[in-house]
């Protein structure tokens, strides 16, 4: 595959699926600087993964897999870095239009952010209406395991939502 073909595919994928990348970025990174950093890592990994894509799954499934794996690796490395230094440097490189749309959406992101990294991926995929089978394929776990985790995540989020409505937290 030539570099030109790779770039064209990347551009097409990015135009079609940037929304899902941004959702993953926002769920795994909290400050604007971290979001930018993670976004770059994901963009690089997606670009590098293009020659390995064999059309055996939908492009969106492939992008989810690459992006989520990158986000999970990023989180592991991120914990080792000096966070206070990075937060001081944080600037709004990416201005998020959604932050003013709905408080409940901000709450939902906050709750997703507090889940462990696998549950976070599952919550995202579930909210984006992927089937159990697709979630299992992307994360490399069994469908029954996905079902158990989904049941637990839904229960957890619904319990938390009661606090949100009762106490605004």
């Amino acid at each position: 595959m030539s570099e030109k073909e790779q770039s064209d595919i990347f551009q097409r994928w990015f135009d079609l699926h940037k929304g899902l990348i941004f959702k993953i970025v926002k769920s795994y990174a909290d400050t604007a600087l971290d979001q930018e950093d993670l976004f770059q890592d994901i963009a690089i990994q997606v670009w590098r993964s293009i020659p390995s894509f064999r059309n055996e799954s939908a492009a969106s499934t492939w992008i989810y897999r690459v992006a989520l794996n990158t986000a999970m690796t990023w989180i592991r490395h991120e914990k080792k870095r000096n966070r206070s230094e990075r937060i001081e440097m944080a600037q709004h490189v990416l201005d998020d239009n959604t932050s003013v749309v709905d408080d409940r959406l901000a709450w939902l992101y906050k709750e997703i952010h507090q889940l462990d990294k696998i549950d976070r991926s599952i919550a995202l995929l579930l909210l984006d209406e992927l089937s159990y089978k697709e979630i299992a394929t992307i994360l490399g776990i069994t469908e029954s395991n996905v079902a158990v985790k989904i049941h637990r995540i839904k229960k957890h989020l619904m319990t938390k939502s009661r606090n949100y409505y009762l106490h605004g937290i």
Binding site: G19, H92, L94, D95, N97, T98, V101
Partner: peptide, 11 residues
Amino acid sequence: TQKEEYVFTHN
């Protein structure tokens, strides 16, 4: 709700 308007703009 974020599907249609979820975009990041560059500052």
